[in-house]
Each structure stands twice: as structure tokens, then as C-alpha cells.
């Protein structure tokens, strides 16, 4: 079970004192159409990149707030885990990246008509961002604009 107890004492103390940003007011876009008519994109904070892309940079103070486009046609086995955190077991996502980037699963949903379509690209960034100001101010809106321009209706957000 996901629990703070999984983390080191130092990280637990850090998280206990951490000033989490509270979303207020909570934005809300109701889904007006049937999912079977909607285009879906994945947004994963698991730090995956594809071959040829720069890995996420663990030297950025406060966290790397950049993001990568992941082509929807990617073979899931080609996804590369570049998440810097040692606070979780990486063996699962390395064995099966669908665990945190379920591209095969959403393709299957589209094939059986549960969703209308899968967007031609998805978004990947690396969590463990302790100073999220630029993420909130710049990266998040840029990601949203990109997906909006693609005609995406629904985003499935997957942590790691």
C-alpha cells in the first residue's frame, strides 16, 4: 500500500514539514460527451523518455520541471525510466512500463470502443519536484495548451 512508511526517515521528516500546495478553488471541467467519443492522453510523472530524448536532469535544484512528448506509437518496451528517485522500487516499471505509462492498456480501450481515441502523443515528466512554482506557472499550462491543441478531451494522470 502506498504509504509514507515506505520512505526513509529523512524523507518522511521532509514530507511531514513540506508545505503542500492546496488547489483552491478546485478547477472542474465536467465531461459532457460519452467517453466512447473522447480522445484520451496520458500524463505520467514516472520520468519516462524515449530513445534519443534527453533524460530528466537530477541536478536541477528543486526538480526538473521539463516535460517530454511520448509518441503514441511507441513500443512500450522502448520507454526508458530516468526517474531520479530512489524512494521507490523501479523494478516493476522497468519490467512493465505500463505500470506507470499504460499505453498498451489505453490502446486496448480504444480498440474496444471504451474511449473514442488515443491522442497521437502523451506527456511525461519527472515527479519528486520539491519546488513546483515553475511547474504550476509554466509547465502545467504549457502541457495543457499542447493537449488542448491536439483536441484531447480527457487526461489520465499517473504517478509512480
Amino acid at each position: 500500500m502506498g504509504s509514507m512508511d515506505e520512505f526513509s526517515l529523512a524523507l518522511r521528516l521532509f514530507l511531514k514539514a513540506y508545505r503542500w500546495r492546496r488547489i483552491d478553488p478546485v478547477p472542474w471541467t465536467a465531461l459532457d460527451a460519452s467517453l466512447s467519443q473522447c480522445r484520451l492522453a496520458l500524463v505520467s510523472s514516472a520520468g519516462f523518455v524515449v530513445p534519443g530524448q534527453l533524460p530528466f536532469d537530477d541536478a536541477v535544484r528543486g526538480g526538473d520541471v521539463s516535460f517530454r512528448d511520448i509518441p503514441s506509437a511507441i513500443d512500450v518496451r522502448d520507454l526508458i525510466d530516468t526517474h531520479r528517485s530512489q524512494s521507490f522500487d523501479h523494478s516493476g516499471v522497468r519490467q512493465d512500463p505500463n505500470l506507470a505509462f499504460p499505453i498498451d492498456r489505453v490502446r486496448e480501450l480504444a480498440q474496444r470502443g471504451r474511449i473514442g481515441s488515443v491522442n497521437h502523443r502523451h506527456l511525461s515528466f519527472m515527479g519528486s519536484i520539491t519546488a513546483p512554482g515553475r511547474l504550476v506557472r509554466d509547465t502545467g499550462p504549457a502541457m495543457a495548451r499542447q493537449l488542448r491543441a491536439d483536441g484531447v478531451d480527457v487526461a489520465l494522470l499517473v504517478p509512480v
Binding site: G2, S3, M4, R22, W28, T29, G140, V154, A155
Partner: peptide, 25 residues
């Protein structure tokens, strides 16, 4: 994303983080 008209749902591993941060779904 919700502010730009994209409906979102997030998987959450830590309940207390969701309670503090308050993502839409």
C-alpha cells in the same frame, strides 16, 4: 488542465497528499 477544458482523473498512491493538494478527481 481543467482550467483549459480538459477533464482529468489522477491515480493517487498517498491519500494524505490528495487530501492536502485536492486534485479535481
Amino acid at each position: 488542465m481543467e482550467r483549459q477544458g480538459i477533464t482529468t482523473v489522477a491515480i493517487q498512491l498517498l491519500r494524505e497528499v490528495a487530501q492536502r493538494v485536492r486534485p479535481p478527481r
